[in-house]
Nucleic acid binder design. Structure first.
Lengths: 235, 235
DNA sequence: CGACCCGTTGAGAGGCTTCAACGCAGGTGG
DNA sequence: CCACCTGCGTTGAAGCCTCTCAACGGGTCG
């Protein structure tokens, strides 16, 4: 299911951070011109196909990544072999923070869609971070955000009935810009995010569709009935 | 249930960080003498009784805390009013990391046992951290540890049958020094950690006791049958 | 002694899982 | 070009697990 791909195959060019279109929202937002001059290692861009892994749990973490577009799931495996998705990483999020500490990756990172990422050496961030207070702060903020996300997954997506969980997940998947639209992933992945089976997920979503809480406009693109979904999520 | 206590009532003295018995394992492990000279604000110690809150979600986070002994639960509430325990904080752990960023507290922190904490201003850590690479690194490591804990709670304690969850929680509660002993909390708290009801938790633990997987030596102190509990946890 | 909290246990209902089957789409190969 | 296969979403039926509501006993504290 998960294809192990050499990143060589996915290479799509060298990044130009100074002129990055995400420059304001990205980890390096606070860097000045003199900081960029200190970046000597090349920063590469990659394009991942759905199902392809960016890294595996236990790999030595030499690199960190910024997601430019698309989405990745962070997976942890249970002793019995089943998997649980512990977080989603989307545009402008950072992958592999643990590499700064020299830890190995804690999850398997797998693309859910076509996903573009920038890769940079963790050592570079470590060095810049000790001298640049803005980056230092930004790093802590990223960790805190990841932690808040983790807590939210526990309280919102792993608590309550399957119907509530699905509703809460749908509401979390909408993005600014299209506040009532939502792109859905495969039922198996949704189930692994919610801690329920594929069948239960499918049944619940099918029921939502029948009740017009979800309307499929294009394949896998849904318009949400926000008020009623919120009601279900909270009841 | 949760008593809101002014910390004034729980004050138990001023800390002497230089001679702290936890000095080597605590956030300030890397501080040098010259760093301590820069600490002018007093660092107070408090002793909390079970059920008493250290801070509430949404409070402005001015302080951080180190747990010297005991244990606190970090609670988040769901829209319907039910609560979920998202993490435990125990000896030498840090509470309120988010305060460094100026965020308000994300959880309600409530003592599960008699708990001693040291309180220090977040601003102090922020200032020391920007100039002290060791502390800087230690802070990131603390965040990473919290994140790993959060992921583990999701995959181990919120996945699988109630029997598996209880077994995994028991195995997580043993501490170095007494590798097969474990102090249990109230059934309601255990349930809130596992995402199951009080009754299910009670039934499961009672069943474990009947099957001799748990033997109560003192009130609420249990000796564990590690091999068999591991088997249940992983099956 | 009575009130209360907490852990335990029972009975019934409901929800989720499990196992199985089916249809549909896309891709492959004859 | 079409038959075939495979992956995925859906649906059904049965069984099990967990929740819900309720009751009971032991302990503590006023």
């Amino acid at each position: 299911m998960v294809k192990t791909v050499t990143l060589r195959d996915a290479w799509s060019g060298e990044a130009d951070c100074r002129n990055c279109s995400l420059r304001t929202s990205v980890l390096f937002a606070g860097l000045q011109e003199r900081d960029f001059e200190r970046i000597h290692d090349p920063i590469d861009q990659f394009t991942l196909k759905p199902g392809h892994a960016l890294y595996h749990a236990g790999d030595t973490g030499e690199f960190m990544f910024t997601v430019r577009s698309g989405a990745c799931k962070l997976i942890q495996y249970l002793p019995d072999g089943s998997q649980r998705i512990v977080r989603l990483v989307r545009t402008s999020d950072v992958l592999g923070l643990e590499a700064i500490l020299g830890d190995c990756y804690q999850h398997e990172a797998v693309a859910l869609q076509v996903t573009e990422v920038c890769r940079f050496p963790a050592r570079m961030v470590r060095d810049l971070g000790t001298e640049n207070p803005t980056l230092h702060r930004e790093l802590m903020a990223r960790w805190q955000r990841a932690l808040s996300e983790a807590d939210a997954w526990l309280t919102q997506l792993s608590t309550g009935s399957a119907r509530q969980r699905v509703a809460r997940l749908l509401l979390r998947l909408v993005r600014e810009g299209a506040p009532d639209e939502c792109h859905l992933f495969g039922r198996e992945d949704l189930g692994a995010m919610l801690g329920v089976t594929t069948e239960t997920t499918s049944r619940t979503i099918a029921e939502f569709k029948r009740r017009r809480l979800l309307v499929e406009t294009k394949p896998n693109l849904f318009v949400l009935d926000l008020p009623n979904l919120r009601r279900i999520a909270e009841e």
